[in-house]
């Protein structure tokens, strides 16, 4: 028996929007720890990892570990039927091949349930060891989204370089080149507007902009984004989900032939 009640139901809609461009089908894993997912994109270049901790739910009942295979587009179709202020409850019985999403309006005058068929998905879990990163950049998530969008109109790849001076995003394409430098800026009115660079040593890596743009679909989930870089390691782009957990994206770097 599984029953997860999330008062802030719109959060689940945002989580789906943050993943479905990258992943079609995925297994959601429920355990005492929380509601989680790890899935790779079809080209095995990028990976998304989600954790919504059990403490973040108003009610969290998970009698035994359960893995539920869902098509994210179908799940999104169902969640779009929930109002933005609705409370969402996810329910599943042991051994059944479906999951129920229950939507309650805030004043309890409308209650809807949508049952979705589950699917069998061969899950490929990757073991991601903890790593020391050479540079960690924290910046406003809207700024990062803007940079990725702007640069993708010029080129296909971005070189992200971190030095003492700041973080530089560079691209080149048929029509020309572009460089955007964000300097460390801690003296802002609101902490979420700060750009903070923790650098052990300078690092410069090349990534496909198409994937970074997909990651920025998580922007509505968090005011800030953390980008962790090390040479010869995939970049980790993390959006913290307030009081609940995170959505992390891993993207393998490009290498010169």
């Amino acid at each position: 028996m599984l029953e997860l009640r999330l008062v802030q139901g719109s959060l689940l809609k945002k989580v789906l929007d943050a993943m479905r461009e990258l992943v079609n089908d995925a297994n959601f894993d429920c355990s005492a720890t929380g509601f989680s997912l790890q899935a790779m994109d079809s080209s095995h270049v990028a990976l998304v990892a989600l954790l919504l901790r059990s403490e973040g739910f108003e009610h969290y009942r998970c009698d035994r570990n359960l893995s539920m295979g869902m098509n994210l587009n179908n799940m999104s179709k169902m969640l779009r039927c929930a109002g933005n202020d609705d409370i969402i409850t996810i329910k599943a019985d042991d051994g059944t091949d479906s999951v129920t999403f229950m939507f309650e309006s805030p004043n309890q005058d409308k209650i809807a349930d949508f049952e979705m068929k589950l699917m069998d998905i061969d899950s490929e879990h990757l073991g991601i060891p903890d790593a020391e990163y050479q540079a960690i950049v924290r910046m406003p998530s809207s700024e990062f989204a803007r940079i990725c969008k702007d640069l993708s109109s010029i080129g296909d790849t971005v070189v992200i370089s971190v030095t003492k001076e700041g973080v530089k995003f560079s691209t080149a394409g048929d029509i020309g080149t572009a460089n955007i430098v964000c300097r460390q800026n801690k003296t802002v009115d609101k902490p979420e507007e700060a750009t903070i660079i923790e650098m052990q040593e300078p690092v410069s890596l090349t990534f496909a902009l198409r994937y970074l743009n997909s990651f920025t679909k998580a922007t509505p989930l968090s005011d800030t984004v953390t980008i962790s870089l090390s040479s010869e390691l995939p970049v980790v782009v993390e959006y913290k989900i307030a009081e609940m957990g995170y959505i992390r994206y891993y993207l393998a770097p490009k290498i010169e032939e």
Binding site: M40, V45, H125, L126, T206, L233, P234, A252, I255, E256
Partner: peptide, 14 residues
């Protein structure tokens, strides 16, 4: 253009 790495070059399947 640079070659695209695969994630499995870095992380192993578990």
């Amino acid at each position: 253009t640079p070659m695209q790495n695969d994630l499995e070059e870095f992380y192993s399947m578990v």
